[in-house]
Each structure stands twice: as C-alpha cells, then as structure tokens.
Nucleic acid binder design. Sequence first.
DNA 1: GGGGAGAGATGCCGC
DNA 2: GCGGCATTTCTCCCC
Lengths: 246, 246
Amino acid sequence: MADLSKYEIIINHALERRESVVFGCNCTIRYSGRAESYLAAGDRIVVIKQDGTLLVHQPEGSTPANYMKNGSSHTVNFRDAKIYFKSQNLDLKEFMDIEIFNIYFYHSQRLDDDQMLEIAGTEEDMAKMLFNEPSLIEEGFRPLSTEEHTKYGFIDLFGYDKDSVLTVVECKRYNGDLSAVTQLRRYVEKIKDAKGLERVRGILACPKISSHALKMLQDWGFEFRMINPPNYLERYDKGQRKLEGF
Amino acid sequence: MADLSKYEIIINHALERRESVVFGCNCTIRYSGRAESYLAAGDRIVVIKQDGTLLVHQPEGSTPANYMKNGSSHTVNFRDAKIYFKSQNLDLKEFMDIEIFNIYFYHSQRLDDDQMLEIAGTEEDMAKMLFNEPSLIEEGFRPLSTEEHTKYGFIDLFGYDKDSVLTVVECKRYNGDLSAVTQLRRYVEKIKDAKGLERVRGILACPKISSHALKMLQDWGFEFRMINPPNYLERYDKGQRKLEGF
DNA sequence: GGGGAGAGATGCCGC
DNA sequence: GCGGCATTTCTCCCC
C-alpha cells in the first residue's frame, strides 16, 4: 500500500491555492448536520471545488453519497498510516469526516470556467408558448400574464376565457400529479376569496396526468389540457439521425 | 497544446472494461432530451461511472452542469485535433455531445464499493419517534401506525386522540410550507370522505413553519406542533468539540 | 435571509 | 412500468 503521508502537504497546499482537487481513494465517511450518516469502507471519487464544495461519489449512481456545500472549509492530517480529511460548514452546522486508507490517484489544478448553462424547454417556456398561442388552451382564451408573482401565489398563466371568466392555468412540463392539482386549487381558492368572485376556472396543462390526479381535478371542477412543452422532442429526431454515426 | 489523439483509444478501452473514468478538460456541451441545453467552452471535470452514469462538473457549485443517467452508453472519437464524446440513452431519449479541446488530466480504474449509506434523522425516523413517544403530540394520543401506504395516500403517523377522534399527523423534518399543509388537508379530506366521518383532526409536526403556512393551517382547522427530528443536532456538539482540533 | 416553487430534479418503495 | 413522496434535495427569484 502506498505511503499516504505526502498527501497531507499536497492536498493542504492545493486547498490553500484554491485549486480544484480530484482523487480516488478507499475511505469511510461520517456526516453530521441536517442528518447523520455513515458509509463503511469502499472505493470512491472525491472532488473538492474552488468554492469549497465537496462531493464524494460511489462508483455507481447519479447523486453523491455524501457532500458539503459551497463555502465549506477543509483540513487534511496524516496519522497512523491514514489520511484524516475533515470538512466543516459552521454557518450550516454541518461536519464531515473522511478516513482515507488508500489513495489511488490524485490531481489538482486551477480550472477556469465563467460560462453559464443555457437551457430551453422549461415550465416557463411552456407558459410563454401558451401566452403566444392561447388557442392551445381553448378558442377565445385571452391571456393576461405569465409567471406572475401575485400575493396569491406564483401563477404560471392567467387570463379570461371567452365568457370573461377569470382562469388560472398551471403548467407542468411532465406528469401532472396530486400536488399539481392541490397547487391549482390553492391558487383558484385564494383568487376567488381575494376578488370575491363566485367562479374562477382552473386548468392544468401538461403532457399527461395520473388517473388519481385527473379524478381529483374533475371532482373539484377543474380541467385538464394535454399540452407538450415546447421543443421537447425537437432534437430527438436529430439524435435519431445521429444514431447512424454510432 | 497536448495531442489528444491517444485518448480515443484510452477512453474507449476504459469504457469497454467498465472502469470508472475521471478527467479534467476544456469543452463545450450540448444536451437534448427532457430539455435542451448548451454550455460554452470552459474547464470542467468529467466523471463516467461503471454503470454508465456521466457527470460534468464546473469548478463551482454542488450540482452537475450536465449529466446522463445510469445505463447511458458512450463513444469517443478523435477528429480535427478534438475529442468528440457522445452519450446516449435510448430508453430515455436523451443525448449529449461533448466537444473536447484539451484534456488536463486523466485517470481510469475499476472501483470496488458495495457499501450503502446508513442514514438517521429522516422523516421516517421522526414518525417512529412520535409513535414511540406519543405524548410529544399530546397527552392521550394513541398511535395506530407509521408510514402507512393507504389508498388515501402515504400517511406519516395515524392515531386517535384522547377523545378517540381519528388524527392524521404529517411530519416534516425541516420547514413546514404551504404544500405540507395542502398535503395534510388532502389526507384528512380523503379519510373523512372514505370513512364517512364528521371530524378528523390534522396535525403538522415540524421544527418550524412559515407564517403563510401557519395561517392556512389554522384557517382549515388544523394544528401545528413544533417538533425536531431525532438526533438532529446530537453530533453537532461532538462537531463543536472537534473544532478544538481544527 | 426567508418563503415559495421549479428541476433535464433523483431515488425509494409499493402496486 | 407508473404513482406517490422524501430528499443532508438544489437552485432560482422575489419579498
């Protein structure tokens, strides 16, 4: 087994220089903060970012086994042939202890990246699409606003139907579920109450809806519109064409 | 700038052997699937796990800039002094293209880890604690079940109060918000309806609650109990003691 | 900083 | 597979 003693200095120097650190190791992990957790010995990939974020990834799965947020501070100590890696975030009262038995690889360097992800096809895009093409809701629908932060809540799409009845549209980019229905109900009830209206329509716009959610929706007098978010599969065909090249 | 051509073979071999792959690079990223995204050139850390999971991390922040889920397949090609890394998940209809201009470091190997995270202090622990110490809800409370999957929903804690009135307790390990209140309301209404009961009590048990949520809770005749999840800060004191060593 | 809601949410469990 | 829901959710935006 490799001599780990050198990593005490190596990692501490990298952290002082605010480099990004990546290493593979065999370790145990204890976490204490919003919950308590323990992870017995195994091989993991550890990433420490330039902002203090710490990620520990097991060799399978999307989500980190353990992590510390942005702003955490870290110390490294060598003792009894092991590296003791400690992280703390005093503001969040979170603590993590990594006991490292072996380090398989190590790299650290400064990374330069000032780019932000550009993204399309969100719920907001969906609301804007319906604002620009109100007939997708129904003929005669006259939208007033999208993504409005009212004191009654955050309403995706708001307008009048052909009979000038106030109508709240809640958009979901994927499956409509029970909480989407209760969210819609909450908005409709608050607006009825605040404006003293007898009737306010509620419409849930989403590609599909669970049967329980549909029943609840209809029981409460609301309506479902099957609507896909914009561009949802636009590049899928392109992707399929790309398959030729695979 | 380094010659990248060798990485076509190196990475493909590692993927064939189902190794875990980690590298640092300068790249652009396009994603198409549940949404569409583009990330302009910058330095990132890329991880490909043994189950096909792909993560791309920018040098700051907890969450990956882009990712592909478990089960995705990957190919690497060298052309025009660049590495073209493509990922696809046909089941999920998701595609990702990484155009790599430089690779700063690279490592791949098989990682062995069959351990599962043990965790304490979850909502389930909270419900069990209240089941074992029902007086934390109120004197005379008689719990029937925890974490029960009924056809009315997934109810954290269920029981009778001292007057034998059926009582639903919804636990939240952190802040009680509007959706917690609507969730509670949904359970209470469904149980009243299903059992033909005039009155069913609803209690929201959590460490704190937002003012709007409290108002809505009280408007609907439900109650708030300030209750902390078990062990929440137990090791915090231990952590504080550890601070001496920092 | 808290509140409210979306997310390419993820992951778990039950049916 | 879908459904319902917790998550050390995270993140953004607004008050």
